[in-house]
Computed example of a mutant assay.
Amino acid sequence: MSKIKKTLMSLGLLLALTPLAAQERSDTTYTFRFVPGRDMFYSPWKGNETELMRMEACVAEWKERILKGAIPVYVEGWCSSKQTKKENLAMAKIRSNRVKSELIVRQGLREDCFITKNHTTDGDYVTVSLKVPVEDTAKAEEAKAEERRIAAEKAKAEAARRAEEARIAAERAAEERRLAAEKAEAERIAREEEAGRAQEVANDSKPKATKKPEDYHFALRSNLLRWATLTPDLGVEWRVNPKWGILVDGSWTSWTWQDKDRRYALWEVTPEVRYYMGKEKRGYLGAMYKAGHFNYKLSDMGKLGDLMGGGLTGGYQLRLNNALSLDFSVALGCLHVDYEQYEVIEGVRVRAGKVTKNWWGPIDAGVTLVWKMF
């Protein structure tokens, strides 16, 4: 009889506890790892970013009840990498606050939503737990399973769509390559045919006895006669076309000797326009202008003044090779000179008179090296 009573009491107690079991809470726990000895919360480290996303999703789901205080958020910090228990406890506290800050900033929770506890053993991490009612958890899991199923179907459909797009793109690219190859082959054949026709024309044409006139070009010039008198000279020529050319030559020198009692100084600028004649365009006629300044003291009397004039030029260019030629030239015309005569007495230049002259005759000559640049 006593055994029957005990059995009935056990059954009654089990039935009484069944509703309570249905109200028990299940733990939803998230773990965040920290670098030993450091308190910074690195979200990309040790899977923290994934865990943070999972925790935010759960908090967002129960946020309303968390803010009302119905579901507390348990935060526990752990640290065992410091030297003393005090240091470990301080580090664990900072780490817990780091994790809570993420939820406060990202989800809008408050400090009173958390129940915090820190430990000085077992490693370097922080755990966050939400005790959600079992029945609510089951519903949430069902909803999440449905969401996952729908997401999986969408992902499958998206993958199929992308695969179809990739197949169409591959077919289009293959067709474009085929068309490009056909176009390149057609262009190659056309070039070969054109080259063949050009070669036939070249073979049929007879070589000419005379050389082709000079093409348009730009050349540097240097009068060797000037250099022979220790007067550096440099110029340029632009052949506008085979018949016409534009030149500018310039000279400059400055010499003193015998304790500056003797002097030879000069600068000149000579622009010129030429007309080339003949089949090879070697001979020419032209017009030139000259301006300059001089200071000569080759004896007891010195001359200091300016010169200006112009005239007609003529000459011939002797070709040395494809790039070099010698230009033999002479100019006839008028040269106007104004200069002062002076003597140097005890290092002081003393004026001895002024002279003005006009010279008719040869005013320039040159044996010039011409370098055709292009």
Rank of each mutant, 00 (worst) to 15 (best):
G196W: 14
E135T: 09
S43M: 14
K290I: 00
R149K: 01
K154M: 09
M1C: 15
W257K: 00
Y342L: 03
K86M: 15
L247S: 12
R177G: 15
N321S: 07
T84W: 09
A143I: 06
I363M: 05
E141Y: 05
N118M: 01
R319G: 01
D364Q: 07
Y289R: 13
V99M: 04
L8A: 12
E164N: 13
R226P: 09
K6C: 09
M9D: 13
W257I: 03
V344I: 08
D136P: 03
K243E: 09
G69F: 04
L179F: 06
R33I: 14
N118R: 04
V348H: 11
R197T: 10
N241K: 05
Y276W: 01
K5P: 03
V269Y: 00
L179E: 06
V344N: 06
R149L: 03
G12A: 14
W238R: 10
R106S: 15
E146K: 07
V337E: 13
L179Q: 12
V128M: 13
A198M: 13
A138R: 04
K208H: 04
Q258Y: 08
K68Y: 11
M9S: 12
A169L: 09
D300R: 08
A170Y: 12
A92S: 05
L103H: 04
G278K: 00
E175H: 15
R319V: 05
T84K: 15
Y42A: 11
A140I: 05
T28I: 12
T210H: 12
H336F: 13
T313Q: 02
D338N: 11
W257C: 02
G311N: 01
R148C: 01
G314F: 00
L103S: 13
T116P: 07
G286I: 01
S251Q: 08
L298V: 07
S129A: 05
K208R: 10
N295T: 03
M301P: 00
P19K: 08
V134Y: 06
K6L: 14
H293K: 00
G361K: 01
A195Q: 15
T313G: 03
L318G: 06
L67Y: 04
K206R: 12
N88E: 05
K290A: 00
K357M: 12
W238D: 05
A160Q: 08
R172P: 10
T84D: 12
D300Y: 06
D136I: 04
